[in-house]
Computed example of a mutant assay.
Amino acid sequence: MADRAGPEDGPGRTMRIAVVVLVAASGAVETISFTALDHVFAGVMTSNLALLGMAIGRARGAGAAAALLALAGFGAGAGLVAWVTHGRTGVATHWPGRVMACLLGEAVLLAVGAGVWAAAGGAPAGVTRDVLQGGAALAMGGQAAAMVAAGRAASPTTYLTGTLAAYIVHGVGRARPDGWVPARLGALIVGAAATMGLRRAAPPWAGVLPFALVTAAALIAAGPLLRHRAAGGHRA
């Protein structure tokens, strides 16, 4: 099937698939973060702000510190990617080269995290747990900012509350609602479920799945970028 933009100049099929795979990666990271890294989220900062407020209200310093670490990591990742991709305009056909470079950097970060996770036997504690938590938030912040920088060829992959609300509001009464929104929502569930199952069956290997999914998404998205460059595209 040809990878063409949609009727409203939206992303082609290949880019949509890459987004779905990145959402699955987010589900995988969130599962590890919430179940094993101090019960905070790596990419859902709305929830972490609420968790921070609850920790303050209960006078729980450890809970507040965990939420602050996740917020700081996410902010640092988003800020770094914003600096790297500054000045690049997203198009509907592919992700810019700098966005791809940021995703590869995320994959490397997740690979290192997977190694640390495995070395800890899938049950990190103390400083190791804090380092992994900060790294997971850094990765999700970078991924979120990369999708913003990618513009029309991307969609949110780390937070889907707004996506769900928009789908309900704009989908009511439409003859053909956007089928890719349920695909993204389902991918989040699948990524989380697969990671949880892997944690139970082979705990040291659970950290590999987020790395594998981000790498797969980058490889899928590389095709349109390479075709654009082969066609003589500039500033990709």
Rank of each mutant, 00 (worst) to 15 (best):
L37F: 06
H39C: 02
A42G: 13
M45W: 13
L52F: 12
L52G: 09
G53W: 09
M54Y: 10
A55M: 10
A55P: 12
I56V: 15
R58C: 01
G61W: 13
G63L: 06
A64T: 12
A65I: 11
A66S: 15
A67F: 01
G75C: 06
G77M: 04
L80W: 11
V84P: 08
G87Y: 08
T89A: 06
T89G: 00
T93N: 02
R98G: 01
V99K: 00
M100N: 07
L103T: 08
E106Y: 04
A107V: 04
G115H: 01
W117E: 12
W117M: 14
A118I: 14
A120I: 13
G121A: 05
G121P: 08
G122Q: 09
A123Q: 10
T128G: 00
V131W: 08
Q133F: 00
A136G: 00
A137E: 05
Q143D: 08
A146D: 06
M147D: 08
A149N: 03
G151T: 10
G151W: 02
A153E: 01
T158S: 03
T158K: 00
L160G: 02
L160Q: 05
G162S: 14
L164S: 02
V169P: 01
V169C: 01
H170N: 07
H170S: 11
V172Y: 08
